[in-house]
Design a protein around this nucleic acid. Structure first.
Length: 510
RNA sequence: GCCGCGUUGGUCAAGGGGUUAAGACGCCUCCCUUUCACGGAGGAAUCACGGGUUCGAUUCCCGUACGUGGUACCA
């Protein structure tokens, strides 16, 4: 078992944007595979044809590319176990379902939707609000257990719509070991006769996941905790199909919850609370509704991944910033938390901030350039790099470079007059005129030289630095913000600075 | 309702029979800075409750409460 090559899979159904919990599942799969020199496969679980959403599959590929978590095998890149799209494997499932019928572990059921509904409403009581099609109920339904063999054969011969259901044992305790939770026990009496093969011939998730994990030689299965209650179905299927010794080890990952309580985080919460839930922007092809993504919000993929890794896992040392390679090296499934975690967007922002702080200015600047392009502002890269270096300290997102440095690209549209006017006087106006003249000779001065010259001039005219530096800043930026004044001057250049002094002087001297 | 899983500051969490119960985010104070950040130093704030077991439980066991997931021909 231990010498088997590790193979893991991420198996999303292409029904919309990829949720951050999904990306975390990808991450854990990926880390585990890389750490064990194994394979990471992407399998598309598109067995529900009624939920097919165009574009969702391509979106998933793009997400994984952006995150840098590329699969070794997938519908896109192929692989030795192709096809990787379950709809294309349709034909392979029926035989296994039939095999289960033959061995008595499954049966044909001919109940119509209406009959099922009727059964549920009839059996529904306050004590049992959701009646299940189980070992008791099946005795009163239309299936190959209650009907005569001849009748069943007849219905089958006439192509009567039917499903195949698992025949859950009435009362056995099923225990298995989960890598995250340890021993977990279920009694089969509490689980229903799940449909294995639908009337349209497609398998349900329950059958497909077992058959494909077997066929694709999956050794470890990671999935969200919401799957835990159906684990007994899957385990029994492995057993009934005769593959028990090949069954993967299970790991049910804790859920990511809403920040304000009450359930799993959903895309609606993002809209409601103002942060992304999907990895990238997703536009619903039907409604054209746009759901915002982390990528477009200005998250760096490394930061996004790092943040996700810490949601439910830590290495025990207190370290929080990890490169992907470090994560591959240090990740361990026994250090995955059992309890769900409320998502904290403030912490997510902090991660991105850390990555921005340590990212080189050239990369940041080129990521920022499109923002300028969009605004129709032309600036060359070296200049953007200088600006980036000056403002990145206060940026949580790449896009924030604009918010904190817009005045490097356009002149102030207005001034914080309340901060200047009350203390404005002729002496100060004269000082700035003189300073502007002096600047002509300082075209290649450094920020420090500029500051010294400014200080000397102020002293000469009996003005305190504090009295003139703030007005100067406001002339240049419009307000009480931005990097150190003389860095701004050095970046803007003498010519532009003089123009702004002139404008400021005009505005303040009314 | 039933079944499963869980519960350490507001949030993420380390720890796991004897500790001043780490650390991070956020919040607050101060220093640096004649803006704001960055950086630095501090601060407030935690073992859900009740029973056991034990010389001793935050830690182990059992209950309760609460949270969360499932209970589909969805995944």
């Amino acid at each position: 078992m231990s010498h088997k090559k590790v193979r893991v899979r991420f198996a999303p159904s292409p029904t919309g944007g990829l949720h951050l919990g999904g990306v975390r599942t990808v991450l854990f799969n990926y880390l585990f595979a890389r750490q064990h020199k194994g394979d990471f496969v992407l399998r598309i679980e598109d067995t529900d044809q009624t939920r097919y959403v165009p574009g969702a599959e391509e979106y998933i590929y793009e997400c994984l590319r952006w995150c840098g978590l590329n699969p070794d095998e997938s519908p896109e890149v192929g692989g030795p176990f192709a096809p990787y799209r379950q709809s294309e494997r349709k034909e392979s499932y029926r035989q296994y379902a039939e095999q289960l019928v033959k061995s008595g572990h499954a049966y044909y059921a001919f109940d119509t939707q209406e009959e099922l509904e009727e059964m549920r409403t009839r059996l529904k009581t306050p004590e049992n609000p959701s009646p299940q099609y189980n070992h008791e109920v099946r005795k009163k339904m239309r299936n190959s257990i209650t009907m005569e063999d001849a009748e069943v054969q007849d219905l089958l011969a006439k192509n009567t719509p039917h499903v195949i259901r698992i025949n859950m044992p009435a009362n056995i305790d099923l225990t298995f070991t989960d890598m995250v939770r340890g021993e977990v026990t279920f009694n089969t009496s509490t689980v229903d006769d799940k449909v294995l093969l639908k009337a349209d011939g497609m398998p349900t998730y329950h059958l497909a996941v077992v058959v494909d994990d077997y066929l694709m030689k999956i050794t470890h299965a990671f999935r969200g905790e919401e799957w835990l209650p159906s684990a007994p179905v899957h385990i029994l299927l492995w057993k009934y199909l005769g593959w028990e010794s090949h069954m993967p080890e299970w790991a049910h990952l804790p859920l990511i919850l809403k920040p304000d309580g009450n359930g799993k985080l959903s895309k609606r919460d993002g809209d409601r609370l103002g942060f992304p839930v999907y990895a990238m922007n997703w536009t619903d092809p039907k409604s054209q509704e746009l759901t915002k993504g982390f990528r477009e919000m200005g998250f760096l993929p490394e930061a996004f991944i790092n943040m996700l890794a810490m949601l439910g896992w830590n290495d025990g040392t207190g370290q929080e910033i990890f490169t992907l390679d470090e994560l591959i090296e240090k990740f361990s499934i026994d250090r995955v938390h059992k309890a769900g975690a409320k998502f904290d967007f403030e912490k997510a922002k902090w991660f991105n901030h850390q990555y921005i702080l340590h990212k080189d200015n050239e990369t940041l600047a080129s990521l920022f350039q499109p923002v300028l392009d969009e605004k129709g502002i032309k600036a060359d890269l070296p200049y953007i790099v200088k600006v980036t270096a000056l403002v990145k300290d206060r940026c949580y997102f790449v896009n924030d470079i604009w918010e904190h440095g817009f005045f490097f690209f356009e002149r102030p549209k207005g001034y914080d007059e309340a901060a200047v006017l009350p203390k404005w006087n002729d002496d100060k106006a004269a000082f700035f005129s003189a300073w502007s003249e002096q600047l002509v000779g300082l075209t290649s001065a450094s920020d420090v030289e500029l500051e010294n010259a400014f200080k000397a001039l102020a002293a000469e005219r009996n003005l305190k630095m504090g009295d003139v530096q703030l007005p100067f800043r406001i002339m240049l930026t419009g307000g009480k913000f931005g990097p150190p004044v003389f860095n701004i001057v050095a970046t803007l250049g003498v010519e532009e600075t003089r123009a702004r002094i002139a404008n400021g002087l005009a505005a303040f001297t009314k």
